[in-house]
Design a protein around this nucleic acid. Structure first.
Length: 1144
RNA sequence: GGGCUUGUAGCUCAGGUGGUUAGAGCGCUACACUGAUAAUGUAGAGGUCCCUGGUUCGAGUCCAGGCAGGCCCA
């Protein structure tokens, strides 16, 4: 047996495990890399997963995408190394350990030593490694698991240090501050995780104020002044001076009045409309004009006061008269200068501050639509201030350091005049019960009321975060942080990003591009324990510091420190193993050039630095392996979830640009999410998570992968439905399996073994074979194109369509008779060769997506020719499809005309089936002819070439063409709107209507003379043949079916001969069923005896040979009494039958 | 709130540069076909192409504004 045969249905899960075992035994993955030694490389970076949780089905998705392109490039002959990696640091691991130990961050270093704690983290982080490795294998993801990079290893951390030092030496690493949640009572910063603890957000009642910021009149703000409505004479009188104009104020609301002295800017929404309103201050009754969002005017001004008399207004009146004087877009207001509200402390940045700036976070939900910005007390404020070059208001403390106007205990600094030393909130628990007690906020607004800078003061209840330990309100406060100055290379980041091929493109230009446009410096600091420590040591006063770039350098510095008696001894003096984690690095003290001791800055760095450093650190570069690094940088391809856009994708890009002035990757695919079948996020809690292991073992890895890729583009979210896998399995894999089984069954019967080169010359092949081979070449071109463009979905769909619709359902179906009959003729040989070529090529094309099944198919198809191939070193010499070189399309074999006429054959067949159905004539009943109207010779010739195929498919004797000369064609005409529209524009309607009314004579004139002049409403139009589409969709007296320009009529006349042939076919069908039911093998010969029945006997008389050949009967007789056999059921009668196997 | 993205049949998805009658598969119904077939064929039912405006002779497609879902960021 040349080709293995399998029982239906195939167990696809078993195929997966069998092939996997075979791969392992034969080291196929290793060979897929080693056999490409010396070839051009395709560099792939594995984004390291974290093994502290079990893998989910979405990991199958992400890794399938990675695998596809690595395998594809291997098929193209490139060498693709795939070093695996593990991401091992970070907050999720720490939180998991805290949870398991039942401790909080506060307990670390107290209840548990940092050393023990980090040891726990180290053990926890690889907990699910075995499961991950298992999934990797079972899903067929080829990645090198034997030598992965692990981010907690000393070499890896050392590389990170070396890179940090490079950045430091370039001046890109600096200490600054960010605004973070801070608990003054506890004296500590709070992580967002701590802030998300239940109960931290509580309702509080605060004193709020709408503050008035006085606009400076200058060129920029002139528009707010020059459109005073001068016709309102009484106003001028009211101010007592014809030239006097009320001052203009910008209104801004705050729930934290104590931040107002730190105000340095006001933010408006660029697209928001704003209003200029004339009115009075409700506390001082001074005439004023104010700016606020148009949408919020009604919140501050009553309907009653609208355009009310300004003359009649008296101090003390409840209703403020107001008048709308102008409106502006936020963008018009940007750049306006205003006066500082409080000036307790000197401020050097004066001239750059106190400006109106745009802010993307501004809304008209509450307040005034204008946001007060104090860069030292709000994260948004800080960011937007930085982007607009607005300085923060800082004061010098006793030690000469700059700081905010609030100290770390939560009090105003003493320079704050009458408010100096006061608590911003009640952080010390002082007594608030006195009748005269005023909070700082209250004191401030009272002062503002007097100054005429408060427009509205009210108590307001809102939710505000509180420290989970002290129950005191959180302060957003500037805290020290180390930064990488990514803004310094912003332009280069943007420029190089434009050279990256993003899939989908919008993620690169939109999500990532916009992020780069609004870049702020990368905050590296994390106050945690399990991670890469910041390698910076500083003196107490911060004037001297050193950045360590290697273990060697650290040891040398330690020696210096020992010499200077800063350290007692060098713990690594005798070659002890170095652990660069805390607490060990914290116990190292260095000495400054000035002789001062230096202490390590206690921060860890952002784990994203770890993963972004992977192109370098995976090789322990730049400490060593410079050559290896060069060969593997940058990556040709990476792929991760779209959620990595500002994570891994960014850190890779940022580090590559800063360190190498290069991109880190040339092609990147950002894949979407895997949702449940209802479009909801999968989660263990909801119980809708799909278990990848169960899925793979039930459906096999190939159907799972194929479904995920074929169903939706990888960058779209996938609604994961197991029913979809079943469908893929049945429709695609089932069909492909059946096609193979069919081939194997008959090839084995004939003892046929395909050979690589001894084949029927292409020119000698029949239409059907040349057609499918032409389609196959087209498919190769198409699929290669899709893979090259990183579009695996289109590749999968094209392969699927070819296999099910073209190969199985047309080529094989129409070729069946060629396989059934007799000897191994030249035509039969050609049929085998053609099918063999299609199947092997499909196995190659599909192998990146369905690696196991493709392997199964390839091996079944080619194992029999392997020995010869190896001897001659020909394309099928490799034992695995994944070691082959992807076949090139032979474009000489693409015959578009042939593909077109086969499509005509398919459509005509379909129409004929439809007509049979309408006439209730089963396909088994032969009919004389079908009629096909043709209006040009090309179509006629095309259809003529496939006439035999059509006849066989729809069981008619011939195709008859009807042309103009037949005189029976009825033509109709349809306007060609595209052409007519371009030509006639608005007149298309009347022209189109006129065309649809064309008479047969007019059509004929147009056809013969090439033009037709028509008159519509007195205007003359000359029509050309291209302006219309002429078709014949009616044949009087015939039942017709049409499909676009194609029309088919069926001659339903039945002659006696046709009837008899129909009966003969029925008989064949019954006998074949009987053979099958009796369990006979395909090649068994039989003898048949039938009961006497006139119609059958007549049919056998005429078609005996045909029947005997079909059912492989040596004898076919009638007898009066047939007993003990079966009964054949026909439409109107039953006939007993006796069937026996003919020996010999 | 911002950026990006998705919205077409019960479900999953196609629908270059606008062209009048919007398709496929699955599912459903009916009939047929079947010596490779858990396949296949034919027919039927099933659509406010998310909504509202606009541009145009003509909009699923282009523009503007919304609505709803998703991701990331605040």
């Amino acid at each position: 047996m040349n080709y293995p045969e399998f029982k239906q249905p195939l167990n696809y899960g078993q195929v997966g495990t069998d092939i996997l075992a075979w791969w392992k035994q034969n080291g196929i993955f290793e060979k897929s890399v080693s056999t490409r030694e010396g070839q051009p490389t395709f560099v792939f970076y594995e984004g390291p997963p974290s093994a502290n949780g079990a893998p989910g089905i979405h990991h199958v998705m992400a890794r399938t995408v990675k695998d596809i392109f690595c395998r594809y490039q291997t098929l193209l002959g490139k060498q693709v190394h795939r070093k695996g990696g593990w991401d091992t640091h970070g907050l999720p691991i720490e939180l998991q350990v805290e949870k398991e130990l039942g401790i909080t961050k506060e307990d670390i270093g107290k209840k548990i030593s940092i050393a023990d704690y980090n040891q726990r983290c180290r053990e926890t982080v690889m907990r699910f490694k075995a499961q991950w490795d298992d999934l990797t294998e079972k899903m067929g993801y080829w990645v090198d698991l034997d030598d992965p990079y692990i981010t907690f290893e000393p070499e890896y951390i050392e590389s990170c240090w070396a890179l940090l030092k490079k950045l430091y030496d370039k001046g890109l690493l600096y200490k600054g501050y960010t605004i973070q949640p801070y608990s003054p009572a506890a004296g500590t910063g709070l992580s967002s995780h701590e802030l998300n603890q239940p109960g931290t957000y509580r309702d509080v009642k605060d004193t709020t104020v709408v503050a008035q910021f006085r606009v400076k009149r200058d060129e920029k703000s002139e528009m707010l002044f020059d459109n005073v409505s001068l016709d309102e004479v009484p106003l001028a009188q009211l101010y007592g001076d014809d030239n006097a104009e009320p001052e203009v104020f910008i209104l801004a609301w705050t729930t934290t009045p104590w931040t107002l002295p730190a105000n340095t800017a006001l933010a408006v929404g660029p697209k928001i409309p704003y209003a200029l309103v004339r009115t009075f201050n409700p506390y001082t009754y001074a005439p004023i004009r104010v700016v606020l969002a148009e949408a919020l005017v009604s919140r501050y001004f009553s309907e009653k006061g609208k355009d009310a008399s300004f003359e009649d207004f008296k101090p003390g009146d409840k209703v403020l008269p107001w008048h709308l004087e102008g409106s502006f877009k936020g963008s018009d207001l940007v750049g306006i200068n205003y006066e500082r509200l409080f000036d307790f402390v000197p401020f050097e940045g004066q001239e750059r501050a106190f400006r109106v700036i745009p802010g993307d976070f501004v809304t008209t939900e509450d307040g005034t639509g204008i946001v007060h910005i104090s860069p030292t007390f709000g994260a948004d404020d800080f960011r937007v201030a930085q982007q607009n070059d607005i300085p923060a208001l800082m004061v010098l403390d006793d030690e000469g350091k700059l700081g905010p106007i609030v100290d770390r205990t939560g009090r105003y600094v003493k320079q704050m005049g009458e408010f100096g030393g006061r608590w911003v909130k009640n952080y010390d628990g002082h007594d608030e019960s006195g009748a005269d007690y005023k909070t700082l906020d209250e004191s401030i607004v009272i002062k503002m009321k007097g100054d005429g800078t408060a427009f509205k003061v009210e108590k307001y209840e809102h939710t505000y975060p509180h420290c989970w330990r002290t129950d005191k309100p959180v302060l957003y406060y500037p805290l020290d942080s180390w930064f990488i100055k990514t803004t310094a290379v912003k332009d280069r980041l943007i420029e190089l990003n434009k050279t990256i091929n993003w899939k989908p493109e919008s993620t690169g230009t939109g999500r990532f591009g916009n992020w780069l446009e609004n870049l702020v410096d990368w905050n590296l600091s994390r106050s945690r324990y399990w991670g890469t420590p910041l390698p910076i040591w500083r003196t107490q006063d911060g004037t001297e510091e050193i950045c360590i770039g290697s273990i060697e350098q650290m040891k040398q510095e330690i020696d210096k420190a020992v010499a200077a008696k800063v350290m007692t001894h060098n713990p690594y003096a005798n070659g002890e193993k170095v652990d660069l984690h805390r607490p060990y690095v914290d116990d190292i003290f260095l000495v400054s050039p000035g002789g001062e001791p230096m202490y390590r800055e206690t921060d860890l760095i952002d784990v994203w630095f770890d993963s972004g450093a992977m192109p370098y650190a995976q090789w322990h570069y730049p400490i060593e392996n410079g050559e290896k690094f060069k060969q593997n940088f940058p990556a040709d391809f990476i792929a991760e979830g779209v959620d990595q856009t500002r994570g891994w994708f960014f850190t890779l890009h940022a580090l590559a640009v800063m360190l190498e002035d290069s991109v880190a990757f040339k092609n990147v695919m950002a894949n979407g999410l895997v949702l449940d079948k209802n479009g909801n996020k999968m989660s263990k809690r909801l119980g809708n998570a799909v278990d990848p292991f169960a899925t793979i073992s039930q459906f096999g890895p190939d159907a799972t992968r194929w479904y995920m890729i074929a169903n939706a583009q990888p960058w779209d979210n996938l609604k994961f439905d197991l029913a979809g896998i079943t469908e893929v399995q049945r429709r695609f894999f089932g069909t492909l399996f059946n096609t193979y089984s069919f081939y194997a069954l008959y090839a084995n019967l004939d003892g046929f073994q395909a050979r690589e080169f001894d084949r029927t010359p292409h020119a000698e092949l029949g239409e059907l074979d040349r057609w499918i081979l032409s389609k196959l070449q087209s498919l190769i071109l198409e699929v290669r194109g899709h893979y090259d463009a990183y579009d695996p979905t289109k590749a999968a769909r094209a392969i699927q369509d070819f296999v099910t619709d073209q190969l199985s359902n047309w080529h094989v179906r129409l070729s069946r008779r060629r396989f059934w009959k007799g000897e191994l003729t030249q035509d039969k040989r050609a049929a085998y060769e053609t099918l063999q070529e299609c199947l092997v090529t499909v196995s190659q094309l599909m192998s990146p997506i369905a690696p196991f099944f493709a392997e199964w198919l390839y091996k079944n198809m080619t194992d029999g020719m392997r020995a010869e191939a190896i001897t001659n070193n020909t394309p099928f010499a490799p034992e695995s499809v994944h070691l082959t070189l992807l076949v090139q399309a032979d474009e000489a074999r693409i015959d578009k005309a042939l593909e077109e006429r086969m499509e005509l054959a398919q459509r005509i067949s379909s129409l004929t089936h439809s007509l049979r159905k309408k006439s209730v004539l089963k396909v088994r009943q032969p009919l004389q002819r079908i009629l096909v109207p043709v209006l040009n010779d090309t179509t006629r010739a095309q259809v003529g070439l496939v006439e035999d195929l059509i006849c066989a498919e729809v069981n008619v004797k011939h195709v008859e063409f009807l042309d103009d000369t037949s005189g029976v064609l009825v033509k109709s005409v349809k306007p060609n709107f595209k052409r007519l529209g371009q030509q006639y524009g608005p007149k298309l309607k009347v022209v189109g209507a006129r065309i649809q009314q064309m008479t047969a004579d007019e059509i004929s004139t147009l056809e013969k003379t090439g033009q037709l002049t028509v008159n519509i409403d007195g205007e003359t139009y000359t029509l050309a043949p291209d302006d219309v589409e002429i078709r014949t969709d009616d044949l009087p007296g015939w039942l017709v079916a049409t499909d676009g320009p194609l029309t088919v009529a069926l001659d339903v006349t039945l002659t006696d001969e046709l009837r008899q042939e129909g009966v003969a076919r029925e008989l064949v069908n019954r006998l074949q069923n009987l053979r099958k039911d009796s369990g006979l093998e395909v090649q068994d010969k039989i003898r048949v005896t039938l009961g006497q029945q006139p119609e059958l006997q007549a049919a056998v008389l005429s078609f005996g040979d045909y029947i005997r050949t079909e059912v492989q009967a040596l004898a076919l007789d009638f007898a009066a009494d047939v007993n003990g056999g079966s009964v054949l059921e026909f439409d109107d009668y039953s006939v007993p039958v006796q069937l026996s196997v003919a020996k010999g």
